[in-house]
Simulated assay, not measured.
Amino acid sequence: MASFLVLNGPNLNLLGTRQPEVYGSTTLDDIEQVCRTFAHDRGHSIVFQQSNHEGALVDAIHDARGVHAGIALNAGAYTHTSVALMDAVLSSMVPTVELHLSNVHAREEFRHRSYLAKAAIGVICGFGSASYTLALQALMDHTKAGHD
């Protein structure tokens, strides 16, 4: 049984009320429950975290080393600005999937650039809350294939 970290960045605590036309009406608590069930049904566990603070996210990524088989990371706006998060993912050597609820490539130009994509094993975006289970499945498959 592997453990996976599902890590969420700034403003994701407001899901369900924040721009529902972009992010939907599903709350972060709803997503957590779906992820827990998804992982459990496949014989795995998750740790689910959210922070609005870049340093706390960096610490969580560092702490994942040797503990979690992979990280599903929705870094929110930090995706497009944070070299620190990119460096944390690279230095942790924990397989990481970048994920987004919305299709960032169909949005504002500044959202088209991702620092995290350079460090991630893959990127999933545009599938709403299903992006989380898609990311977890990708991590499970990656781990099973022995890529970690």
Rank of each mutant, 00 (worst) to 15 (best):
S25W: 03
S92Y: 04
V22S: 00
V97M: 12
H53C: 06
N74E: 02
T27C: 01
A119F: 08
V83W: 03
R65G: 05
Q49T: 09
V83S: 01
T81P: 06
L7E: 04
L101T: 13
S45L: 05
A72Q: 05
E54Y: 11
S91T: 10
Q137W: 04
S131T: 08
L85Y: 03
A145E: 13
I46C: 01
L15N: 09
D59M: 13
G128Y: 03
V83T: 14
A120I: 05
A69D: 09
F110A: 13
A145W: 00
A117H: 02
I124V: 15
G70M: 04
L7K: 05
A84V: 05
V104F: 07
S114Y: 05
F38R: 03
S45P: 01
V22N: 02
V6R: 03
P10L: 12
V58E: 02
H105C: 02
V58N: 07
S3F: 00
M1N: 11
S102I: 08
L14R: 15
V58K: 11
E98M: 08
Q50T: 10
H142P: 05
N11A: 14
V104A: 14
F4N: 07
A2P: 09
D30G: 13
L15I: 14
L99W: 03
C35L: 01
V123P: 06
H40L: 11
T81C: 04
A64G: 06
A138H: 12
H44P: 00
L28C: 09
V34T: 15
C125F: 04
T133G: 08
F38Q: 01
I71A: 10
H147Q: 13
A56N: 14
A72N: 02
I124A: 03
A106I: 00
Y78Q: 13
D59W: 11
L15F: 10
T26N: 00
T37Y: 06
A2C: 07
L136E: 07
A88M: 10
L136W: 11
D41E: 15
V34A: 12
T143Y: 04
H68M: 15
E32T: 00
V97L: 05
S25M: 11
N11R: 08
I121Y: 00
T17G: 11
R107V: 12
A106Q: 14
A39M: 09
L136S: 07
V6F: 02
A88S: 09
I46K: 00
L28T: 06
H40W: 03
A84Y: 05
D41S: 14
L99T: 09
A130Q: 14
G16S: 06
N52G: 05
D141N: 12
Q33F: 02
H112I: 08
V6S: 01
F48Q: 00
L12I: 10
N52R: 07
H147G: 00
A120S: 15
G55P: 10
T143G: 00
G16C: 09
A130L: 10
V67C: 02
